[in-house]
């Protein structure tokens, strides 16, 4: 019965969401419902409000209107169902912690106030580090990692949260090829385990390959639907507001997609 109910209720439902900074609206009347088990890419130009959307879904920003439900409930009721990969620049990498300490932070939400992580949590954190191929670096201080490795540490921390719905803000930004491959493998594994994942992404050609659905965002939802329906020149142009460089990128992406039909990127 619960399984049925779960399948019926969307993993994420955003209704008429409006968010402003200092009264200036950044997101307007967002309406989105994401079914469970999907890998969704959030695409839009810089300043479109992608990070803002993610943060307000997680309750990190005050909203000026509308609501967000996660598996039919307000996030406040059960924050454990949601995992988060923030933008890499959002923290100080000189902070005195080891890689394993950071991944262990993913367990803190489950532990609750005042309880210390135990052996089981440590094992879980190590397993998550192993999944992103960083176990050998577990005891390093986090500034001793490359950018791609730092991004994978954040991914491992989110895995340690064992959530059902994940929000990831630009996990592919500025990473090397090995990290990109490792991340996408983990995302696909999560999806086949029935998790729902929303990923902010900035690269159009790979967006087309990686995601089941795309959410084209620029202050409001330009389009949301299966990738092959939404990834059209017209909609992308609408999203990116006719900026020339981006348009040519879009054209190139469309061309590459047409003659390759998936597989490797150009």
């Amino acid at each position: 019965m619960t399984a049925d109910a779960d399948a019926a209720t969307p993993a994420l439902e955003i209704h008429d969401l409006t968010v402003s900074y200092h009264r200036k609206p950044v997101l307007w009347g967002i309406d989105v419902a994401v079914a469970p088990g999907q890998l969704v890419g959030i695409i839009g130009p810089n300043g479109a409000g992608k990070s803002t959307l993610i943060k307000s879904c997680m309750g990190l920003l005050p909203v000026s209107g509308g609501w967000v439900k996660v598996f039919g409930k307000s996030l406040r009721d059960d924050p454990r169902r949601v995992g988060y990969v923030p933008q890499r620049e959002s923290v100080d990498w000189d902070f005195p912690v080891s890689v394993l300490d950071v991944v262990l932070m993913g367990r803190y939400g489950r532990l609750g106030l005042g309880r210390r992580p135990g052996k089981a949590d440590r094992e879980a954190a190590r397993a998550c580090l192993d999944k992103v191929q960083l176990l050998p670096f577990a005891n390093r201080q986090i500034s001793n990692l490359s950018g791609g490795q730092q991004q994978r540490v954040f991914l491992a921390r989110a895995l340690a949260q064992e959530a059902d719905l994940y929000f990831m803000d630009e996990p592919f930004a500025g990473v090397d090829a090995a990290t990109e491959a490792a991340i996408i493998a983990v995302l696909r594994e999560l999806r086949s385990a029935g998790k729902t994942i929303l990923v902010v992404h900035h690269d159009l050609p790979t967006a087309r390959q990686y995601f089941d659905r795309l959410l084209l965002l620029n202050m409001n939802v330009v389009a949301f639907g299966p990738t092959e329906e939404v990834f059209t020149a017209e909609l992308l142009q609408k999203t990116y507001g006719g900026r020339l460089t981006l348009l040519s990128e879009v054209a190139q992406a469309l061309g590459a997609g047409a003659n390759a039909g998936g597989g490797e990127r150009a």
């Binding site: 309750g59 990190l60 924050p79 454990r80 949601v82 988060y84 923030p86 932070m105 939400g109």
Partner: peptide
């Protein structure tokens, strides 16, 4: 270390 993440974990 990461107040945003801490808040997101409840």
């Amino acid at each position: 270390f990461d107040p945003g993440f801490a808040r997101a974990s409840g």
